[in-house]
Nucleic acid binder design. Structure first.
Lengths: 109, 109
DNA sequence: TTCGTTTATCGTCGAATAACGATATTGGTG
DNA sequence: CACCAATATCGTTATTCGACGATAAACGAA
């Protein structure tokens, strides 16, 4: 039940895809550790070119995992916690699923 | 704490990558719904060519999200629940994180 | 208006991905 | 041994990804 219902496999895969790169994991953890959001210090932190980081941020924004709020000349990024709930639910469902038959494979006929 | 410690961003990204395709999500849900494991009925279920499904299964096995046990001429696949715990932890950490400043962006100096 | 700072976009390149059909492999059955 | 069924692998093709430098865009400040 919960959030998983009515979420397509495509949507689940899209959420997972946003997490499917070390640099994006890095960015997400950065946004998690800082209570406030960050501007271009993300770039210096992840150690990639500015354009590359911008692209990763674009992907994260497209997946709606992070949001960007324009401030001065900078942009403040924040995590969108709700967006990842469907994937969280799926993982929880798997993690809590019990193996009904230990050892026996394919419900031996 | 918990499982997240000592897991690199690369490993987290690799787990996410295994989930980053609709067909693989489909396969995982299939293995979740069936208590026992499945053979080639995965192929007919996902509606792609046998070789394509085999490739997705290879990716899932490489990521250690599923395991394959050879039986007859068939192979029995099962979910490896433990493998995804690091990603589950990260998602839980994000989901449970509170936004300390509402509205205010970038900890206004 | 001009300047400087920050971020986004563009163009390019090599590498990886996804999909397929065809073929190889494996191992029990007749 | 020859056969059959189930998987895996190979070769190919089109698409996407990741990274970079260069450049554009936005906008407050001087």
């Amino acid at each position: 039940m919960s959030t998983l219902n009515s979420v397509s496999n495509e949507q689940l895969a899209a959420i997972a895809k946003a997490f499917a790169h070390p640099a994006r994991i890095h960015i997400i953890q950065l946004l998690l550790s800082k209570p406030s959001c960050i501007g271009g210090e993300i770039t210096s932190e992840v150690g990639l070119a500015q354009s590359t980081v911008s692209e990763h941020l674009r992907i994260l924004k497209a997946a709606e995992i992070v949001t960007g709020e324009i401030e001065h000349p900078r942009v403040c990024y924040s995590l969108n916690r709700e967006k990842l709930l469907p994937l969280l639910d799926l993982l929880q469902q798997i993690a809590s699923s019990q193996v009904s038959n230990d050892g026996a494979c394919c419900a031996g006929t």
